[in-house]
Amino acid sequence: MIRTYRALLVAQIQAASQYRVQSILWMLFSVIRPVIFLAAWVAVANSQGGQIGAYDVRDFAAYYICLSLVSNLTMSWNAYDFEFEVRMGRLSPKLLRPLHPIHYSVVENLVWKLTTIIPLAIVLVFVAITFDARFRTTPMHLLLFVPSVLLAAALAFLSGWVLATLAFWTTRVHAVSTFWDRAAFIFAGQIAPLALLPGPLQTIALALPFGYILGVPAEILRGGVTIPTALQLMAGQVVWVVIFYFAFQRVWRVGVRQYSAVGA
């Protein structure tokens, strides 16, 4: 399996190298939103004496920088690709090879992250200096961040695949995944750090999977939560990964039977 991954990686890096500019543009696009929110929160904070809850301007900067990084490291766009593949019959050749189609997506996903991480880091350093970001990160936070971001990536990937697999039943997954993205917008910690959501919304957010993909690892990286809280939140991540893992197994098994090889 390692050899297969290596071969897939080589091929995918070659393919991706043809779209360098596109990759960079996508990366920049993914940074724009957090930076806009950062600018908005900085303005709000400044108008209220420089502090909202536990966040001052420099905390907001650190939070949104961490969020951008996590967002890049956990991004998963399978639902869109997969719907296209099912609709155009492009899935068929993959289904006929002795390798689960999910592996091609894992590799594509990894390659995108590898090719965009360095330019992204440069942009984020620039933002950090501009906004004078303050990180409260301890070595323990850094240590926990690694498994936490991996769990978040797995969760984003698996939940993306569960959505994607709906394409077996309807070839219009787009609507569902747009709804999903809107929910993530509110509950994942993009519009505001989870700690600043009003009481009931915060409870809802912690009961939903979205925050465990973005907000949780971002706060751990920033050092915005205590170590015990971080561990608690990571337990939540594990629960959601397990849930989506089994959901994916189930949905895939039933879905493949359903697959009518539309247009294939």
Binding site: R3, T4, L8, V10, A11, Q14, A15, P93, P98
Partner: peptide, 19 residues
Amino acid sequence: QLVWDIPAADSFRVLQEIY
């Protein structure tokens, strides 16, 4: 079933590992 953006020889290598 080939990857559009790379030469077939490279796709063959991928298939070699898959099979």
